[in-house]
Design a protein around this nucleic acid. Structure first.
Length: 434
DNA sequence: TCTGGGGTCCTAGGACCC
DNA sequence: TCTGGGGTCCTAGGACCC
């Protein structure tokens, strides 16, 4: 981590730059026939999920994350296109290079957006408004994409400003006009306010950021919890001490696979988890990292989800070890989460819709240590977890065996069949480090 | 009609230690 | 006999972001 050592300034020296409808804009850049038309990247009129929508499609209410059939219903002329995912990474990197010309203090927070601290650059390039305008022109002319920029005294204000600037705009919030700018805006524009928080606030008659700023922090903390209440209260009052920092190391590595609606058979679970474990473990090894805590998430048909986790005595990054641990946790989750055999509500078969593996508690580990073979007393062996944990695992494994057959679970599955869908381009993109 | 994939952070209870 | 208080770690769930 590196904190930019720029001097503290009272001016709007923090910029938030955010590419507009990024995936959709790239598609329209690559294929001129799509320009000006409502398009959706990903999904289809029959199913799947829309990953991104062009502004022409957003005008009809189409949004990212929406099922394709719903999007087609809202916008009958919607054009579904397959993504060009390698192009997204390439073009976004180009944009970040342009931003980096304005200041070394660039904090990339996703593929398509970044914070910049330009307090050290104003003597070279002029005031933040000029820098922001110049960056927008360069990104448009050199890369071909529309980008919106907000400039303000704090990160939160800059981010809100870039949202207000969309599409394809620039908004600079001068310090003396911050309240005037924020007060009428809906609370949903604030970072950290999602559907649940928005509803809770609405129930209290709080709709705008101005409303929020007038609410006592004790009342907000009671309504939203200590951390969220305190943070939102401070942000509404423009108290945001966060600095622009270069990106730190990831705290977890994970992968998931949606399955539609499938019977939780030993074969399916083993195949999917083997695949997920391979993806997660190979990424950890590639980064020279290993993790102690393994978390498995099982989502049942009907979207209810259960997680089970286990913290080992030492970090792991071996595919097989991760697969073993994940398989035990998955059956624990399936059996517990569904009621289990003999329990009220327990059924003969279970339908699941998603499996996920995540590894956290990461530590740096050199390749040579990662590839050591497991010895009987090796602390990385799941069997050396504490007695209570092992007992719980044995219980759930026994229950799974009793229910699904002797071969349902094992410490060392003899064959790990490849299964599930082929990793698609989107997944490969999502796995890339920014 | 049926809902992706990758993350971060917070909370609350319990175990455990001193 | 009957028992404090603080700190840390682990686990499970949930809200949120892009």
């Amino acid at each position: 981590m590196f904190e930019y050592a720029g001097r503290v300034s009272d001016g709007p020296t923090i910029l938030h730059a955010d590419l507009d409808a990024f995936y959709a804009s790239v598609e329209q850049l690559l294929d001129p026939a799509l320009r000006g038309r409502p398009i959706a990247v990903g999904g289809s009129a029959r199913g799947g999920v829309v990953l991104a929508a062009s502004y022409e499609a957003k005008a009809h209410g189409v949004q990212g994350g929406m099922p394709g059939w719903r999007a087609a219903q809202l916008c009958p002329r919607l054009v579904f296109v397959r993504g060009h995912f390698d192009q997204y990474q390439r073009l976004a990197d180009q944009v970040m290079d342009v931003l980096g010309d304005a200041t070394p203090a660039v904090q990339r927070i996703s593929i398509d957006e970044a914070f910049l601290d330009v307090s050290g650059s104003v003597h070279l390039f002029g005031p933040p408004a000029v820098i922001g305008a110049a960056l927008r022109v360069r990104v448009r002319s050199e890369v071909g994409l529309p980008i919106s920029i907000g400039a303000a005294r704090t990160k939160h204000l800059a981010k809100v400003a870039s949202q207000v600037a969309k599409p394809d705009g620039l908004v600079v919030v001068e310090p003396e006009r911050e309240r005037e700018f924020l007060d009428p805006l809906p609370v949903a524009l604030m970072w950290g306010v999602g559907p649940v928080t928005q509803q809770r606030l609405a129930d209290r008659g709080i709709h705008t950021i101005g409303d929020l700023a007038h609410e006592p922090s004790s009342s907000l903390e009671h309504l939203l919890g200590r951390a969220v209440g305190a943070r939102l209260g401070a942000l509404a009052l423009n108290e945001d001490p966060r600095r622009v920092v270069t990106s730190g190391r990831a705290r977890s590595v994970g992968a998931q696979s949606a399955l539609g609606r499938r019977q939780a058979t030993p074969e399916l679970v083993r195949a999917v988890l083997g695949n997920l474990a391979e993806r997660v473990a190979s990424r950890m090894r590639a980064k020279g990292r290993a993790g102690r805590t393994v978390t498995v998430r099982v989502r049942f048909a009907g979207m209810r989800a259960v997680t089970r986790s286990l913290t080992l005595g030492a970090p792991i990054a071996a595919t097989l070890t991760l697969t073993e641990v994940a398989e035990q946790l998955a059956w624990q989750a399936i059996v517990d989460g569904d009621g289990g055999p003999g329990r009220p509500g327990g059924k003969e078969s279970v339908e699941i819709s998603l499996l996920a593996i995540s590894v956290s508690n990461l530590a740096v580990q050199h390749a040579i240590q990662l590839e050591l073979p497991l010895q009987p007393e090796d602390p990385r062996r799941p069997g050396s977890a504490t007695g209570a944990a092992r007992w719980a695992l044995d219980q759930s494994m026994d229950a799974a065996r009793a229910r699904f057959g002797k071969d349902a679970v094992g410490y060392l599955p003899a064959t790990l069949r490849r299964g599930g869908g082929v990793p698609d381009d989107f997944r490969e993109l999502a796995e890339k480090d920014l």
